[in-house]
Amino acid sequence: MLATQVEKYTDVVAIVPARHRAASNHLNNLKGQRKNNKERNTKMRGLLATITMAKMLLILFGLMIIHQDVVDAARAAGAVGTANAVVTMNNTCAYYVGYIANPENCQGWGLCEGGILKATGNCGKGMLYDSRKGICNYASKVQCNTSPADVCANTADDTFIADPTSCSKYCFCSNKALIGCKSCNNNQLFNPSQSQCVNSYACPVNSNCRLVPNNQFVGLPGKNCGKYLRCLDGSGTLGTCPNGLFFNGISGKCQNTNPCGATTITPSALPPDTAMCKTSYSAAKGGLQYFPDSDTCFGYYTCENQQGIGVWRPCQYTFQFDSVSKVCVQSTQTKCTHNRCANINLKFVTDTSSPQCTKYFVCNNGQQSTKSVACPADFPHFDEVNQACSKTNPSYPICN
């Protein structure tokens, strides 16, 4: 009897370790599977990251080619935006009155009065100009984005960003540092929310609100002249004055008369220049280069290389091309001896060949008069912004 019980007990004792070993083995198998799954997931994430990085580098170095026929179709439909019309302090002052930011200096500010940049200055030590509040503020409370390097210092790693100085350029940031920049192909614009070049995008670099404080109003050129933008965080919402009034960006107020009443001729494109790039392009400088045309005040040619063909482009409405800075600027900022009445909304324009702006031309349907008119002796200087002769010489570059 005792022997039988001992045998049963021995069998039970033998079974328990066996079951324990089976459970332990099952647990180890589960741990192994979990480890393998984790390793596979890690490898998959690494592979996806590698693919993403490769895609970024492909885009960055221009190896992803967008078909020209798609861009041509979009351009024909009017969907391609303007890549080169970057807003400057002078440009902004043409449609705004008050203080603005300096896009080239984190501490800098400017004062717009009478359609021109009246004054500039810098915030004190440890302070930066807060473009959203319109004040000098502590550096720790201001995010300054005057350059791609500034943006990279304040953005997530391994990210594409828009170049804050150009709608058509984008850059790659890694470890809070700028890795490199690239231009979109075929005059496309970079959309940072999609991280890709697109045919149509409301780029804030081109917005008159970029340098203007929040909840301020800035005027508009072209077809929207007489309307305004209400600014918020560098972009704006289109608005109109009540009761049929017109917004005057120079005064910052609504008024009865339309400040853009003059009739203008829509600029027509000039043909490509086959010799421009060969004779003017600098191979040592490289990159996309800009050259004034010899027929208009508002047009210019672009060359991608010395073997290319010069493509003609117009400045945005009311702007003229400055052959020195190679950018489109307010008409009072650059001297031009061609027809200054084209691509502008003025009834009178300064004769820039006259000393200290003593003469002006009359505009008729976008064409300036054959001969200029001299201001009277008691008001000897023509003020193009205020459209009248004045006693004092305006401080515009065209009058110097």
Rank of each mutant, 00 (worst) to 15 (best):
F291Q: 06
P292R: 06
D378N: 15
N29A: 13
G110F: 01
S235Y: 00
N258E: 03
Y9D: 09
C303M: 06
F291H: 06
S193T: 14
N186R: 13
N365H: 09
V151C: 03
C203K: 10
A342I: 03
L30R: 11
A18L: 14
I51Q: 05
N215S: 11
L211P: 01
N243R: 12
L117Y: 03
G239W: 01
F379T: 15
Y301D: 03
G236F: 00
N25D: 14
N243C: 03
C297T: 05
A101S: 12
Y138A: 14
T10S: 14
T240C: 04
A342L: 15
A49Q: 12
N185K: 13
V311C: 02
K8Y: 11
T10K: 15
A342D: 13
P164R: 07
I250M: 06
S323M: 08
L220F: 02
L128Q: 13
Y228E: 04
C167W: 09
G249H: 01
T10N: 12
K35R: 12
F291N: 07
T334C: 07
G366T: 03
A149D: 11
P242W: 02
T146Q: 13
V71F: 04
A388E: 13
C152M: 03
F291L: 09
N400S: 15
N214D: 15
C254A: 11
K55T: 14
D233Y: 08
G261F: 00
N256S: 11
K118T: 07
C144H: 03
P292K: 08
G226Y: 04
I116P: 00
V12P: 00
Y228I: 07
K8G: 02
Q356L: 10
C315H: 09
A377F: 03
K141P: 00
C363G: 06
A76V: 08
C171I: 06
R75E: 11
T358H: 05
S131A: 11
K38P: 00
S183V: 03
D383V: 07
C277A: 09
G366E: 06
G222V: 00
P271Q: 11
C328Q: 07
I179Y: 10
N25K: 14
F291M: 07
S369L: 07
T257P: 01
A83N: 05
C341A: 05
L57R: 10
Q367T: 14
N122D: 12
P355Y: 08
G244T: 07
Q289H: 08
